[in-house]
Nucleic acid binder design. Sequence first.
DNA 1: TTGTACGCGTTATCAT
DNA 2: ATGATAACGCGTACAA
Lengths: 350, 350
Amino acid sequence: VSSIHDVAKAAGVSTATVSRALRGLDRVSPQTRARVIVAAEELRYVASPTAASLVSGKTHVVGVVVPFLTRWFFANLMDGAEQLLRRNGYHIQLFNVGSRGAARTLILDRRLLWKRLDAVLVLSADLESAEVELLRNLCLPVVTVGVDLTGCDRVGIDDVAAAEVATSHLVGLGHRRIAYVGGNPGEDVHMATAVHRLTGVRRALGRGNAPEEPSYFIESDWTMRGGVTAASRLLDLDQPPTAVVAASDEMAVGVLYEARRRGCDVPGELSVIGIDDHEMSFAHNLTTVAQPVWDQGRIAGELLLNALSSEGPHPRRVVTLPTALVVRGSTGPPAATAPALHRLGGRART
Amino acid sequence: VSSIHDVAKAAGVSTATVSRALRGLDRVSPQTRARVIVAAEELRYVASPTAASLVSGKTHVVGVVVPFLTRWFFANLMDGAEQLLRRNGYHIQLFNVGSRGAARTLILDRRLLWKRLDAVLVLSADLESAEVELLRNLCLPVVTVGVDLTGCDRVGIDDVAAAEVATSHLVGLGHRRIAYVGGNPGEDVHMATAVHRLTGVRRALGRGNAPEEPSYFIESDWTMRGGVTAASRLLDLDQPPTAVVAASDEMAVGVLYEARRRGCDVPGELSVIGIDDHEMSFAHNLTTVAQPVWDQGRIAGELLLNALSSEGPHPRRVVTLPTALVVRGSTGPPAATAPALHRLGGRART
DNA sequence: TTGTACGCGTTATCAT
DNA sequence: ATGATAACGCGTACAA
């Protein structure tokens, strides 16, 4: 409830001096600064951020665009970015845009972003072209994680390689009937990721001289339930696969669940590998390709701070982080004999 | 890049009229309003939120204080609250305070909150007394989830009852050697929750005439790893329990993992029950007491909107949501014979 | 080193 | 119904 005038009066100086003293600018005598600081503390003065923003044009707020708050991957990205940004005096404003298509919760729009933010962080959210356009017109630093926006700084992993490593692991174990449970490239926020991982799987199959059986490629959503549904379709086939690559650990766990439910032994009758190294994966004994999620968020924050501190245009920065195969107990060599069938009576769920 | 003056000029009216027309106030002729709207659209005008805040005193920003972004429970609370608030024109600013004690990431402080927010949502974060004091001095509506702040609106579940139901389920199955794996009440953000759930367990044991064995009460942290550690201690006992109540599903899954790792059959040799109904619990076939997490967030958002729209002080509102026992496969009657031991060689990990 | 005064882009009050 | 104008609270040239 006390303004800069009150502090000025109490310290016996002008408001300009208060402003300078409190913000650590030079051209203020040490004694004066001390008096001002004491007075400000006394009056519990805090400069109004809105007033400051109005004149400076800086809000010290960073917008974070994210498709899901509730999924492990995004929550960890957020966490990594948040800590760094906050430590450097920036506040985080959340834009939870939701999934694509009908499930989309929020369309980014001028009034939502305009004049509110100093920068934008896009966490693996594929945006509509109009939204990308908008982001550009904002004339703000934009950093993305796991998705490409031409010209914007970016951090991510090599999704093609990650899927390739996962698939090659199975090929190396002797599997030839390998299925892929991936995200739906058309309707999903992870469009790019879905495409890249599919590419990686194909590449590994080709290199390993393993066939591509169309019915082994299932599109589903990135959740555990998606994995359950996909596994159900696969295990209902006359010739079920002997191994499954899932595009995420959550989906992989869904596959494990459905296999277990049908009495299909893992890895004896079915090997399963995921991508992510989700925090729960070790409890499921899931083999996976680990990616450093939290670090991707942190580094994205660093890139943002960098862009924020350097005036003018800067060269584009792209950071690609390494992944690593984590072998646990859900993968093994295929059974020597033809596997037992674990079909359920009815038709596969969709 | 266009201000209200540009729109005024383009529409041939004053800035005051532009403001009124665009905000849907009355005392503007329909024709004038139309002209203004067209001009604004033409110029892609969006009112500067900072300037508007400076004069109105309203920021249309709600602060959300949360101890962890990365845990399922909090992410879902956030999600529920976020959607409702955004739909009603409020922006979310994140305050990820982190755990208690040394692990604490962020101390809430005047400059962080002052003049920035219209209201604050505290999601199950136990705050330092100084922070609570600060929150009060902000003179803003404050709503909490799962934690009590005297005078503040609150939504939550009956934690005592939830733990009681979980424990009674085991008692009803015939168990008498029942352990409890709970949060550390001293060092944890969930202080209140930890205390309440412990109370519920004790109450059920007392009512069921089951003994309270001190070595069966383990304090750990609310994660899966905490559950692993706790289970390790319990299974190393000379007389291990026949059943475990875990304060959260994540801990319960940790217990399941450690039991499985030691070859201890669930539920044959050990029954396990959690609290939450975490989205992954069905894959672990975990019996649990479900609570409506997302709804708690949503309702907290509703309370906040309510407080925001009604001027002046209002009577305190407390909403308590129901919980429900979900019986799956991790609980069953105790074995008739004395259970086998599943101790490991060394001393229990701590 | 310090003070004066203008401007940031709105909303709100009053007059018309 | 509309317009002129004073706040809102601060940062910052510029003058002193």
